[in-house]
């Protein structure tokens, strides 16, 4: 097909984002392991923090994206809005899984137990389970208009838990630390600040790149599905020929 493989400026922007995220990850790893000092009471296990917190932030990004796509889809259903919601749901589960595995590994050292029913841990687990349910619904619940709208409602419902996760520490106390606060935070070394800042930037770019790639794949799948249906109707498809 003529022009099919031509790269658009958006493609180059995508590649630039991926390259920048990769470079920033390399720099982050360097700063985290070679420059940032070991924490006084927790020791080296505190370095999990530099990837755990940005992962939690990316989970929020995915969940917010799912909410925006779902709400927009309910207002006016389009394949792009549905793809945005679906990609956001996947992102929330991927980064939620990272949060729920890296956190307990840190807690094993800091608290002496892998898991405790702390408000933030419990609400985070609940949120990830909601998005797992969302993806299961998308995978096995069919791809009709009704199913998509039902999934969009679940995508909106899932976002309702996000502020609860965030404010659970302030509202119900618990054991989970609150190092990053509006009053400046608890990182007292410049290299610690740099490590966290770089990690946040790298994870943000990486999340954008994944989201972008996933939306494109989903849109391509949606277009292909329509083209296959048209092909069957016109007698072009293998199934019609057989």
């Amino acid at each position: 097909m003529p022009g099919r493989d031509r790269q658009s400026p958006l493609d180059w922007l995508f590649y630039a984002t991926v390259a920048l995220a990769t470079g920033l990850f390399a720099w982050t790893i360097n700063v985290v392991f070679l420059q940032a000092p070991v924490e006084k009471t927790m020791g080296i296990v505190q370095k999990i923090f530099y990837f755990h917190v940005p992962s939690a932030y990316c989970m929020y990004v995915g969940a917010t994206d799912c909410f925006v796509g779902s709400a927009a889809y309910l207002i006016r259903p389009t394949p792009a809005r549905d793809a945005l919601a679906r990609a956001g749901g996947e992102l929330a589960v991927v980064f939620g899984a990272i949060v729920l595995t890296s956190g307990p590994l840190w807690a094993a050292k800091a608290w002496g137990v892998y898991w405790t029913w702390d408000p933030r841990l419990t609400t985070s687990l609940l949120s990830v389970l909601i998005y797992v349910a969302y993806l299961v619904l998308r995978a096995f619940g069919g791809d009709g208009e009704g199913e998509r709208k039902f999934a969009a409602a679940l995508g909106i419902l899932g976002a309702a838990n996000l502020p609860i996760i965030h404010y659970s520490v302030q509202k119900w106390s618990g054991q989970h630390p609150t190092v990053i606060t509006s009053k400046g935070g608890g990182l007292h070394h410049p290299a610690m600040h740099l490590a966290l800042g770089l990690s946040f930037t790298a994870f943000t770019l990486f999340a954008i790149a994944i989201l972008w790639a996933r939306v494109r794949v989903e849109l391509a799948r949606s277009r292909l599905l329509r083209a296959e249906e048209d092909a069957v109707d016109l007698g072009l498809d293998d199934r019609a020929e057989a």
Binding site: I48, F51, S102, L105
Partner: peptide, 30 residues
């Protein structure tokens, strides 16, 4: 009565291994 049964270094390595494995698996699926 102490809770110090795991090496902090081992836990950190496990955490980073899990993080990169999850991301890699997702990229392969994509």
């Amino acid at each position: 009565g102490g809770g110090e049964t795991r090496s902090g270094t081992a836990l950190m390595v496990e955490a980073y291994a899990v993080i990169w494995t999850i991301l890699l698996v997702y990229l392969v699926l994509l």
